[in-house]
């Protein structure tokens, strides 16, 4: 038996795909791809040791070997930016991956079994959503102790309700469709129907929401690192760099904060635009 999917979810030709995405969407996708590559290879292609201090070079401007200049401790800014992409960009991917996996599983289970389980999940989600995610993450890190693993886990947990609520709505619609009843009648196990038939049909919504969540996660993880609760200095990270650059701002050398801040804004913006386009495309497909 082949997987049954909604007929409208897949656009039938490339032109339709491109117009749904638009220029901004394609640019965003390109930015995401470039940043992902940088995050993967950044630490290896960084021209200098991102943690090597040389106080003599404190706040020196750019030169041929140091295209963005130096930070307060005389470290190469470009190298720190490249190496910092790993935690700043891949960290949110882990957060959203965790939230998506857990949130989707809870949502599909609630939609599938319904009744008391669905009511319980909805109640828990409502309570969880009333609590600001970033505050939850700050509290968790304050208890567990600062560091990237704790911050990533805390934010991952904080985003589960957002993901679960959206996926549950889509899953509820899907579970009520005729093809699901048909598969049930054929005696297929519930898990197989959910994983191989329901999930693929709601996947575009999940992906769109995940991309949007990536934008929030990028900013929130940077905020935790900025507050000293996420990535710990001297490990390079964009949030850490924005915080560390504050002393430079006071002294009239804002390069560190500015370049790291620009990267964060571009990354969050790209995720946001991409997520919006994906969701719009999905809604358009449904409307058809």
């Amino acid at each position: 038996m082949t997987a049954m999917v909604l007929p409208g979810v897949r656009p039938t030709h490339k032109a339709g795909r491109a117009s749904a995405f638009g220029l901004a969407g394609r640019l965003s996708a390109a930015v995401v791809i470039i940043f992902t590559v940088v995050a993967l290879i950044g630490p290896w292609v960084a021209p200098h040791d991102p943690q090597a201090v040389d106080l003599k070079a404190s706040f020196w401007g750019p030169d041929a070997g140091h295209l963005l200049g130096y930070d307060a401790a005389g470290r190469d800014l470009l190298s720190r930016l490249l190496a910092g992409a790993r935690t700043s960009f891949l960290g949110p991917l882990v957060i959203v991956g965790f939230a998506t996996l857990l949130g989707s599983s809870i949502a599909v289970a609630a939609a599938w079994y319904g009744r008391w389980l669905d009511s319980a999940v909805v109640a828990v989600l409502d309570v969880a959503l009333a609590f600001p995610g970033l505050l939850l993450a700050v509290l968790t890190v304050a208890i567990v102790g600062p560091g990237l693993p704790a911050a990533t886990l805390a934010l991952g947990v904080a985003y589960v309700p957002h993901m679960a609520r959206l996926v549950r709505s889509a899953a509820l619609r899907e579970v009520g469709r005729d093809y699901v009843d048909a598969l049930r009648v054929q005696g297929l196990p519930a898990v197989r129907i959910a994983v191989r038939h329901v999930l693929p049909n709601i996947w575009p919504i999940v992906i769109g929401q995940a991309a949007l969540t990536l934008a929030w996660a990028t900013v929130d993880l940077a905020a935790l690192s900025y507050l000293g609760l996420g990535v710990q200095p001297p490990q390079p990270d964009w949030g850490v760099m924005v915080a560390a650059g504050q002393s430079g701002v006071l002294q009239g050398y804002p390069a560190e904060s500015v370049v790291a801040g620009v990267c964060l804004v571009v990354a969050a913006g790209a995720f946001n635009l991409l997520g919006q386009r994906l969701l719009r495309r999905c809604e358009g497909a449904r409307a058809r």
Binding site: A52, A72, P234
Partner: peptide
């Protein structure tokens, strides 16, 4: 960890210690 000047000292010391063959684990405490 909340005072930038002190953090700069810690990061500098850690980097210089590495050059001298001493590994320094830096703890930036709240």
């Amino acid at each position: 960890g909340w005072l930038p000047e002190y953090r700069t000292f810690g990061e500098t010391f850690q980097s210089d210690a590495r050059k001298a063959g001493l590994t320094v684990k830096l703890q930036l405490l709240q």
